[in-house]
Design a protein around this nucleic acid. Structure first.
Lengths: 342, 342
DNA sequence: TCAGGTTCTGGGAGCGCTCCCAGACGGTTG
DNA sequence: CAACCGTCTGGGAGCGCTCCCAGAACCTGA
């Protein structure tokens, strides 16, 4: 028998030969199947260690029809991804949660139109067992394209305008906004403005709706108290300036994200307003590296990306195991973390 | 011949049968090999379209021994990744550059010790054709572990204390620091402090060395003018406060990252120092969403993560094609972008 | 002692693809 | 008309693995 050259990877056959058993027994030992004698298992494991064996994944997934990889698709313009701490947290959480169930994360950024076709082709190609999608923009064509996929898909947050027929794990955006505004109302505030997120996104729309309904329920008039911004720091600062300009007597503001709240805070202090005495500020996200670190620390609606991703992974695993066949919409609850800004 | 059930993916064989040619011809047509008649190619492509065929990657890579996937490993404590805009830019650049050469990015976060073994096992398992590694910390055990891999590896930035035997693409950190400090010296500054990065990282060490050497060359005394911080905003703010405390008459500061410079700026303005009149500030990174957006906009040493990643991908592709066998250390030049802070 | 289990093992088939090789086909040449 | 070339095609082997199945080995209890 010719010795294998140094750089060639040992195969299962090599391990079996080295251990003096058959390929089948070696396979069983390595995948700890039933019905392998302790003696054989021992020998096989030793042989594998000795030869530095690691199984060829391509061969394995050719027969098992599982790749052990899950795609995480982020559909968002390039610029937004760079300074959005929430997205970074999502990537990280995705990695951890998938690792916990023994899956590898394949990150996909889908932005331009060419990205879309490339993404679909990739997902179609059997590289991954399932897909987690974050596509917050309503006009995004990606979610529709993904519906036709032969691979299970779970959406994080509202999936464009697909309301049914898909698996979704979302946060209670409207409920969160209600919590925030109720908190301000019961603290005696009466001129409660809002800096809303871009209205092409479901989450932004829901947060704005929550703010509006709560005001109306409390007998307050929401007219003229809305300014829309783009979830960035600079956008938040500009929106706050414009609000102060239009409504100088406002005494509170509900900001649809921590990042925008940082900008708003900056504008407010330049304008000489003290927080929370003159103006109370409540934001959304409760990002760990942002909200508690501000001066003053921000009261914020708490949503944990890990929880969302965990629920998404769980749903996906059920899907892969053939359970949970009907599409479901899970709405995760949020809570209010009260700090000094309100 | 039994009809294939709806949900089963068509194979190459199915496409061939549908097109009325052999499996070989179908394969040739789809991979546009030589020696296929226009007629056959046409029929095969039509059949593939009709059946919604996409090749099984596992089967393909089993025989070609290529997966078309490249791992990007980020070895960094969790907290750091979340608010480090440079890392986010690297991920993004990695995705783009790899997509351009037809490869898929598999992102790997390697932080804890369990991560290390899992990472090594994964990379060993033949899931990917090559690896790009960012492991800035000198004490990090990962780079050593990766040396033994049978997969080509290219490091981004100094690879722990492995000085030779590995492929590295780094920036000229020391040269960048020299540029920054020379700029300050020639503007007539004479008490030039620095906020250095963590000294367990090669890049930080080199930037500090560049600062020190340039001061000495200019006949200035670096003693007592160094404060070390952790590349975070808060860390930069604290370091600046401590510098002001110890050296009240400083007239310039070289900060080893944009993020820390933002913190330093905050401290300086709280202390009533005007920038650049009282204190000139020069930082490092020239992050597009940070440096130009500050008040005042930051003078910063410009380094483009895309360039670094592009060079890394190029090296890796050469490695995969069997060219460029000897390890090389590429040092990319940096430049100084002058803005209002100096 | 032998039937009837249970535990363990090895061989064979086959996953879907690419690549090699033999051969068919058609159009030039001598 | 035979010899030859370049173009095109189909069959077969094989990548490294898992799974199925037949059978060996070992244990019971009657």
């Amino acid at each position: 028998m010719a010795a294998r050259s140094e750089d060639e990877r040992p195969t299962l056959e090599d391990v079996a030969a080295f251990a003096g058993v058959s390929r089948s027994t070696a396979s069983r030992a390595l995948n700890d199947d039933t019905y392998v004698s302790a003696r054989s298992r021992e020998k096989v494991l030793a042989a594998a260690r000795e030869l530095g064996y690691s199984p060829n994944q391509a061969a394995r997934s050719l027969v098992t029809r599982r790749t052990g990889a899950i795609a995480v698709v982020l559909s968002e313009p390039e610029a937004r991804l760079l300074d959005d701490p929430y997205r970074t947290a999502v990537m990280r959480a995705g990695y951890r949660e998938l690792a916990d169930v023994g899956c590898q994360m394949v990150l996909i950024f889908s932005d331009t139109r060419e990205d879309l076709t490339r993404t679909v082709r990739f997902l179609e190609g059997g590289h991954v067992d399932g897909v987690l999608v974050f596509a917050p923009h309503r006009a995004d064509p990606l979610p529709r394209a993904l519906r036709l996929l032969r691979v299970p898909v779970v959406f994080g947050g509202q999936a464009a305008d697909l309301r049914r027929g898909v698996h979704v794990v979302d946060f209670d955006n409207e409920g969160g906004a209600r919590l925030a505004v109720q908190h301000l109302v019961s603290a005696g505030r009466s001129r409660i403005a809002t800096i809303a997120g871009p209205q092409d996104q479901g989450a932004s729309i829901d947060r704005l709706a929550g703010w509006r309904k709560t005001l109306v329920d409390a007998g307050l008039d929401p007219a003229d108290l809305v300014e829309e911004a783009d979830f960035t720091l600079a956008g938040g600062a500009r929106a706050m300036a414009s609000l102060l300009d239009r409504v100088p007597d406002l005494d509170a503001v509900f900001v649809a994200s921590d990042m925008m709240a940082v900008g708003a805070l900056r504008t407010l202090s330049s304008a000489g307003r003290s927080i929370p005495d003159d103006v109370a500020v409540v934001s959304f996200d409760d990002n760990a590296t942002l909200a508690p670190e501000m001066t003053p620390p921000l009261t914020s609606v708490h949503q944990d990306p890990r929880e969302q991703v965990r629920a998404m992974v769980e749903t996906l695993m059920n899907l892969l195991d053939g359970r949970e066949p009907q599409p479901r919409r899970q709405i995760l609850p949020v809570s209010l973390t009260v700090r000094e800004s309100s």
